[in-house]
Design a protein around this nucleic acid. Structure first.
Length: 166
DNA sequence: TAGGCCATCTGGTCCT
DNA sequence: AGGACCAGATGGCCTA
């Protein structure tokens, strides 16, 4: 197994700072962007997704670029939030590789297994006290969820939970 | 050097 | 209309 103790990667992002930087720097970034774009569109694969519907917006190329950059920034933020959620998940899953960061796929797999084992433990302890189970997502799952809601009813978490529980 | 993992960019689609 | 979400592409970093 390989260790995943790599440092923070310093990636060059074509962001608004770059955009507002010295013109030559900005130009370089834009050229880089265009090159990449060309490589893609001119590549061996013709786009499988046909451009449908949405009317072309009458934006100047500068506006378009600005919108792209803003969109990139939002996407970065979104991915950072996703990664924070992964990190939070890593911290509550018991695993043997405390010194090594779990990969995303490992995190998800372990989380699934962890939930499964907790469920079966609770089931054993309850000794048939709760209704029959048809998988975690069934009646048992909703029972657990109800219990959680009772415990955390006034919590801020409730809204959060409901938001993501559907 | 190959392969795994990841961050970022990008354009299409969905949703509000 | 515009932001959120998604998936594909790309390239960097790291380990075996």
């Amino acid at each position: 197994m390989k260790t995943k103790t790599k440092g923070k990667k310093q990636r060059q992002t074509v962001d608004k700072e770059a955009f507002s930087e010295e013109p030559s720097v900005r130009k370089k970034e834009l050229v880089k962007c265009l090159r990449r774009k060309e490589r893609r569109s001119g590549g061996n694969k013709e786009s499988s997704k046909m451009p449908t519907g949405r009317a072309k917006r009458p934006w100047s190329s500068k506006d378009r670029l600005l919108r792209r950059l803003e969109s990139n920034e939002r996407e970065r933020q979104r991915m950072h939030k996703l990664n924070n959620a992964f990190q939070a998940l890593r911290e509550v899953i018991p695993h043997v590789r405390a010194e090594n960061k779990l990969s995303k796929i490992e995190t998800l797999t372990l989380a699934k297994n962890y939930i499964k084992s907790l469920t079966s433990i609770i089931l054993n302890m309850s000794n048939g006290h709760f209704p029959a189970v048809e998988g975690v997502g069934g009646a048992w799952g909703s029972k657990l969820y109800q219990h959680y809601q009772q415990q955390h009813g006034e919590d801020d978490h409730e809204e959060h939970l409901q938001k993501y529980s559907t």
